[in-house]
Design a protein around this nucleic acid. Structure first.
Lengths: 248, 248
DNA sequence: CATTATTGTCTCATTTTGTGACAATAAAAT
DNA sequence: ATTTTATTGTCACAAAATGAGACAATAATG
């Protein structure tokens, strides 16, 4: 760290001004639904992973780029759910604090101090495949259970809440959730995932009957765990099932 | 018209650069679901009503402002449904044509020639209460049935299609559609509205049972039309029913 | 070999939805 | 006045979906 030599943040010219994205990245560890939250260096600010859009880049692609940088994953289920455009989103003090804590030069008219409109996406990823990497500005990036989030800066709590609401609404009709499981799983696994997302218990027999009737699962061999009980079948999603979606 | 004296378009400084909105305004005339489409002066370009966001204005408010200018209505059911952010949305030739056809000065770097990210909303309004007014740039603004739209410029057909898709998905769960009817209506009226939106016939008895079970209607006096048959009851939505919504 | 917890499947009750029948009109035709 | 006509509100029953529990099958354990 060289306190006298300040770093220069990427130029205003490189990005679409006033435009940002934020992503709510859902993962599932077999028990709880979690999201990725990062902490900015030396500020105590927790935030959703976000970023900016290059001048000649689709907004969708900017989000994919950010996801790739932070998770290493390429084909991620991604869904845009809302754009947050209130003037109250301008947060020059917060941005100044973050930039200064990271030893960046902050001119009076630095473009990060402007108002930003943020396009928000949620993503579903496999918890186990990912070892998230902090970006340049952040100390850490960690999983937090959906009901145990730290206080998030700006309107990020509202964004996360709306993401969860949308995920729940889409769960049945878009058969999402499918990206949150390993490739083979038991009936109990997928039921617990649905329970974690919806935050309520489901009846075993009804759930099983319903999801089998959907005709989206393939049954495989049995799973022998060493537990003292009947072994469950393993299932996977049918090959033609839209496990990974990037387009609507 | 003074061909030598060119007009000046509002300054780049007044608006958030690269940001626009488009609105899909649904109306219902008792038979068909229609949307408002405008035609730019002397260009043959048909487009959805759109506009720009002032530097110190919420995106939602910009849309409401545009709706008010074009329809005169204040409390409109409005729902944001998607943000279109591909680079392919830049359409300098189209914008230049429109500006020149309207006798505006067009500098090489005029801000309208830039790439725009558009936040799209749909609105539901009462067909009968509205006499749409063309704005400064447009010749006309007219209702078009949803399945008889003219060719729309840029990606506006995609925007309209997605609006309709979202409206259909939201119809049951958000009880929208309610803003498309007069304050009192018969069971047949509301059934026909649902049919127009969904594009499919519904069974009379089932529809009636279902919508009455929702407990959102108040029954009033009968309607005597002069037709040779049993008079139907009139209904209205319950007072506490969210007929007009601006927030989620 | 008995015990134990869990699973797959079946059965029956309950609720919701599909489908048609039918009597009760309001106005026009006779 | 009476009959005719089209439409409406409601009921009745069938079919389908869902809720709720029962039960035998079965991996491991001891």
């Amino acid at each position: 760290m060289t306190p006298n030599k300040k770093k220069i943040f990427p130029s205003r010219e490189d990005y679409v001004p006033h435009l940002a994205y934020d992503s709510v990245i859902f993962g599932y560890n077999g028990k709880q639904l979690k999201i990725l939250v990062l902490e900015y260096h030396n500020t105590g600010f927790f935030a959703l992973p976000g970023g900016f859009v290059k001048r000649n880049e689709n907004v969708d692609d900017a989000v994919k780029r950010g996801l790739k940088e932070r998770t290493g994953l390429d084909n991620i289920y991604l869904e845009q759910f809302h754009t947050f455009g209130d003037t109250t989103r301008a947060a020059p003090d917060v941005m100044r604090t973050i930039l200064e804590a990271n030893n960046f030069e902050v001119e009076e008219d630095h473009w990060l101090l402007d108002r930003f409109i943020s396009v928000a996406y949620y993503a579903l990823i496999n918890y186990d495949e990912v070892h998230p990497r902090p970006d340049e500005l952040s100390d850490s990036i960690n999983w937090y259970a959906i009901d145990q989030l730290p206080n998030l800066m700006m309107d990020h709590e509202e964004i996360a809440a709306k993401a969860l609401k949308t995920l729940r609404e889409n769960l049945d009709k878009k058969l999402t959730g499918t990206n949150l499981l390993p490739s083979k799983f038991t009936m109990k696994d997928i039921q617990q995932l649905y329970e974690a997302i919806n935050g309520e218990k489901l009846r075993r027999t009804t759930f099983q009957r319903k999801i089998l009737a959907m005709d989206i699962l393939v049954r495989h061999e049995k799973l022998f765990t060493g537990g003292a009980h009947k072994a469950p079948f393993l299932y996977s999603f049918k090959a033609n099932h839209p496990k990974i979606l990037n387009a609507p």
